[in-house]
């Protein structure tokens, strides 16, 4: 065990995987000499050279498309897209290219690439640098989308993602990079598609990913003071989704709050609540409550932005409402 920041855990995962497999290479904006704007790739160009750690021009569209075909022809690229807000530039490569080939070409190609990006609000980065956009990504068949909340999961899941033969979008959060946590030593893999129960409870289940897990845990503390026992499930993976973990928890608590830092309408929280109805309708004692971003752009000024973001208080309020 070592105490590590989330960004350091990611760095360790990249370093270990690059050392173990010469077909793993990194490319992205500012990731080489500078070490990445969030310092995730710090020191890797020095260690592995300029061919395997490439600073790129600002060309998200082509870079993502290149990751797809590089992955189909013998390498395991890890592409960094600096902000999730830039993902729309990558969408053709994900929606029309990466998602189709394994099926359309009758299983004859693998696409082992990882697209790392970070999203989310709370840092005053404004309307074009604060979004999550995870729903948009999780919508695409054939692509895995994961969003770890702890340094240990960040490392174990990034290693799993690099070794996965399917495309994986790896969602980080700008406010998680400095979070510290215990990370197991050695070559520890955290499988993709498995949720983690962070807090056991019996009255209401809180489902979240990424930074929203941190808020959900805080909400569970607040609810405890209210006399409510909340279960916190870190889904960790948006797609594939660990639906059994969801059903098991709801079969115990019969009340669900789904939390997502994306927009509400057609969002991931909507998908979760539909999934709950598909698989656990008869376990529900109240409608599923959604805690999301309101359906509008993210403003810059601090009180405006803070008012908009989902947080522990909003999760607590939603939990109390669903228990009425």
């Amino acid at each position: 065990m070592a105490l590590m920041r989330y960004a350091e855990a990611l760095n360790a995962a990249l370093r270990e995987e690059m050392a173990a497999d010469p077909s793993v290479f990194l490319f992205g904006e500012d990731i080489g000499r500078y070490g990445g704007v969030f310092k995730v790739t710090k020191g890797l160009m020095e260690e592995f050279g300029e061919s395997r750690v490439r600073d790129t021009p600002i060309s998200e569209q082509a870079m993502t498309a290149m990751a797809v075909t590089a992955a189909m022809t013998g390498t395991r690229p890890v592409l960094e897209i600096m902000y999730a807000d830039f993902i729309p530039l990558s969408l053709d490569a994900l929606v029309n290219q990466a998602s189709i080939y394994n099926y359309i070409w009758d299983g004859k190609v693998k696409m082992p690439f990882v697209l790392r990006t970070q999203g989310g609000g709370g840092s005053g980065a404004g309307a074009q640098h604060s979004k999550a956009l995870d729903s948009m990504l999780a919508h695409i068949p054939g692509i895995k989308v994961v969003a770890p909340s702890t340094p240990a999961d960040a490392k174990g899941m990034l290693k799993a993602a690099i070794r996965d033969d399917q495309p994986v979008v790896f969602l980080e959060h700008k406010l998680l990079y400095n979070v510290r946590g215990e990370v197991p030593d050695g070559d520890i893999i955290v499988p993709l598609g498995k949720a983690a129960t962070l807090r056991e409870g019996k009255d209401v289940s809180l489902f979240a990913t990424s930074k929203m897990v941190v808020e959900a845990v805080k909400a569970a503390d607040l609810l405890q003071a209210d006399g409510i026992s909340a279960e916190v499930i870190d889904l960790r993976s948006l797609r594939p989704l660990d639906v059994n973990a969801i059903v098991t928890s709801i079969s115990k608590t019969h009340h669900a709050v789904v939390v997502n830092e994306g927009w509400r309408f057609c969002g991931y929280a909507a998908e979760l609540s539909a999934t709950i109805m598909d698989f656990a309708f008869d376990e529900l004692d109240a409608p599923v409550a959604r805690v999301t971003l309101p359906d509008m752009p993210i403003p810059y000024s601090e009180p405006l932005e803070i008012a908009m973001l989902p947080n522990a208080d909003k999760i607590r309020a939603a939990a109390l409402a669903t228990l009425k």
């Binding site: 077909s23 290479f25 490319f27 061919s51 395997r52 569209q61 082509a62 870079m63 498309a65 290149m66 990751a67 797809v68 075909t69 590089a70 992955a71 189909m72 022809t73 013998g74 390498t75 690229p77 053709d92 490569a93 029309n96 290219q97 080939y101 070409w105 004859k108 190609v109």
Partner: peptide
């Protein structure tokens, strides 16, 4: 497509074949 033969594919998104070939060349170089 025929991956064995190196035909990695027709592409019906106009322009998408250009970064596709470039990405394969990147893989070859790495």
């Amino acid at each position: 497509a025929d991956v064995e033969k190196g035909v990695i594919g027709g592409n019906a998104i106009v322009g998408a074949g250009i970064p596709a070939a470039t990405g394969m060349a990147l893989s070859m170089q790495v």
